[in-house]
Simulated scan of single mutants.
Amino acid sequence: MNNEVIVTAALTGAGDTAGRSEHVPVTPEQIATSAVDAANAGAAVVHIHVRNVETTQGSRDVALYREVMSRIRDSGVDVVVNLTAGMGGDLFISQEDPHKPVDGTDLVNGLERLPHVEELLPDICTMDCGSLNFGDGSQLYISTPDMLRAGARRIQELGVKPEMEIFDTGQLWFATKLIDEGLIDAPALFQLCMGIPYGAPADPGVLQAMVNMLPPDSNWASFSIGRNQLPWVAQSALLGGHVRVGLEDNLYLSKGVKATNAQLVERAVSIVEGMGSRIATPEQAREKLGLKRRA
């Protein structure tokens, strides 16, 4: 069991959820405020996407990331910032002509997913470690070995810690190759993402198998989506990992009760402390994860 647990709050994501809950932050001000509230509730790390203010959909606009980062820093609240670098991998194909991308496609190469990381130099950025049939229908998430190697090399040059997002066992296999190839600096950081159709199911046995595949001395966290999010806090900590909650992955505190990010963090803190473990501070998280100190 993990006796000192890092809590990450995934604040908004890129899914079409803003219309389903009034608590999903959309504007840079709302996202930054939610980050501060989550940090004050006990999150050592905030994981950030940004959204187009007009459409409420996910965005890669560097200016939006810049404003969120500025507002968080100006708040004076200490928190580790983890920016997504997964946007730009969405491919929707036509049933009639599979060679033709259709509306919703946002597909760029690995380096074109990093301009905000290059400018803002967050503590952590994510790296989705493989391609995936993303739910039902004809949506794919594309992240090829060539894209990942190029992205990993650039992230390493920038001195940013990559959080390797793992959606299935094959992706974990490839992530370990990146370590072997010297493209990921120690200590490696993994996020085991469970229950996303159609990746690894939210099954404790599957999580245990993935944990068994992790390289020695790596840091890892795990989360599950929807109603499994809060039970997974205990599941992850029991197996020695850190935890993630937030509105990116789940909108509810309990059945029919919509949550805020701060409320989900508070519940995660309660679960972890109820198990007899401590909640890591941002400074403890930096030390544990081997993060570079910024000026």
Results as ranks from 00 to 15, higher is better:
residue 284 Q to V: 03
residue 190 F to E: 05
residue 118 E to F: 01
residue 285 A to N: 07
residue 209 A to D: 14
residue 25 P to G: 06
residue 200 A to D: 11
residue 162 P to Y: 05
residue 184 I to S: 03
residue 206 V to E: 13
residue 268 A to K: 01
residue 98 P to H: 06
residue 97 D to Y: 10
residue 25 P to D: 09
residue 102 V to Y: 05
residue 88 G to H: 09
residue 188 A to H: 06
residue 219 N to V: 00
residue 62 V to W: 10
residue 78 D to K: 10
residue 292 K to M: 11
residue 241 G to C: 09
residue 140 L to N: 07
residue 267 R to P: 00
residue 184 I to F: 04
residue 15 G to P: 00
residue 50 V to L: 09
residue 74 D to L: 09
residue 87 M to L: 10
residue 139 Q to K: 14
residue 93 I to P: 00
residue 126 T to K: 02
residue 208 Q to E: 15
residue 85 A to L: 01
residue 76 G to P: 03
residue 289 L to A: 07
residue 242 H to W: 04
residue 254 S to A: 14
residue 61 D to I: 07
residue 129 C to L: 15
residue 241 G to R: 01
residue 245 V to D: 02
residue 221 A to Y: 00
residue 291 L to D: 09
residue 111 L to D: 02
residue 112 E to S: 14
residue 272 V to Y: 01
residue 115 P to W: 04
residue 172 L to F: 12
residue 20 R to D: 11
residue 186 A to K: 14
residue 100 K to V: 14
residue 184 I to Q: 02
residue 267 R to I: 03
residue 246 G to K: 03
residue 270 S to E: 15
residue 94 S to Q: 07
residue 58 G to K: 04
residue 62 V to A: 11
residue 55 T to P: 03
residue 255 K to A: 12
residue 253 L to Y: 11
residue 176 T to H: 13
residue 287 E to I: 12
residue 34 S to K: 00
residue 264 L to N: 10
